[in-house]
Design a protein around this nucleic acid. Sequence first.
DNA 1: TCTGGGGTCCTAGGACCC
DNA 2: TCTGGGGTCCTAGGACCC
Length: 413
Amino acid sequence: MNYYALIDCNNFFVSCERIFNPKLVNKPVVILSNNDGCVVARSNEAKKLNIPMGAPFFKYESYFFLHQVHVLSGNHALYADISRRVFLTLEEFSYPIEIYSVDEAFIQISGSIDSLVEIGKAIKEKIYQWVGIPVSIGFAKTKTLSKIASELAKKNSSSNGVYVLEETTFLFKSLFIQDVWGIGKKYKEKLNSFGIITIFDFIKEDPNWIKNAFNILLVRTQLELQGIPCIEIPNHEDYPKSMVHSRSLKKDYEDQKEIYSLLISFLSKLSTKLRSKKLETEGVGLFLYGNRFKDRSSFHAYRQLDFSTNTTSVLIQFFKPLFEKFKNDPFPVKRVGIYFFDLKLATEKQLCLLKIPDEKKDLMKTIDAINKKFPQSKLRYGSEAVDPYKMLSKKNSSSLYTTSFQELLTIRI
DNA sequence: TCTGGGGTCCTAGGACCC
DNA sequence: TCTGGGGTCCTAGGACCC
């Protein structure tokens, strides 16, 4: 029998922190978003204190203090590295795999229920032993069902973190549609308005009606819930179609030179990422937002290129006029972002009949190599901000234990 | 009164996910 | 005072074609 499994890291960001700081074990811990804005991860103990996902830090600060909640700024370089190690370990098992997010992966597997439980246990133990991250594993006939199974694995203490979902009819009468992968807030409200409350209600609806009232995605979800796989594991090495770098700022900024140089820093950072992944872009865009809790001002502009590139100077050249448009009708800026779209593999570069700007490939290579070797003293373009971080804020971050020699863990014996 | 019909392509916006 | 960031996919509607 063919199955899918979802391997899901438990409270991933918190678990990463706990590897290096055992004092956090069994304590309520929350991880904050950039700018220390809101809660993006919680330990089980923090969940028990009814701290919701997305809770704004400033509203909960005194509550955290009262309950001795450990509060950390997100250390995403660390989490990315731990994530990589988790999936390298999972790949040891040689099943077809899809890394779905920083803390989740699907695998495809066949076997009897008993053998699945054994394999699940083995995976769970190996990841914990090799990387130190606890995971939950859910097996089922489709990806959508395996999501539900992994939640059951997490909640069901008798399952030991591994759950095989077989019979669903009874279960679905007690599960709500909003617990289904692919059904968010809007769909939930609309489905509820038609009296569809549980997964059981949803499954017996006419697919044609769902197609007309919603879209093809929900029809797929419905089939998946009935055990008919519609969402496959991609069988090729995929690369991203777009890339964004965006941040909320410490305060509202009005100085256009400051905003511009920050955007150039972002552009430079994003092109470096593009090069490190051996990709090129055929489009560049930017967006600027005012403070979304006070005013709804926004600006958005993009430019399609006639060729693909990952050269910072070339991208700056095409970016400049986009920012000029903002100057016509400026507003105080609270959030900024740069994005690339229509990404292509650098190795499959299309030749262009038109004259394209000098790509300075060797210069880019040299700059990247120097910046990699000396991360403290970054080589940058003249128009980049000298210290982009002064426009952002970050307080309680843990160290880069696994990605920086300066910040290795110190152990006293 | 009554104003074609059928097709493709592109994009902005909206929904979802973590 | 203070509210994250990075992605994907689908669809309606407009522009354009004959």
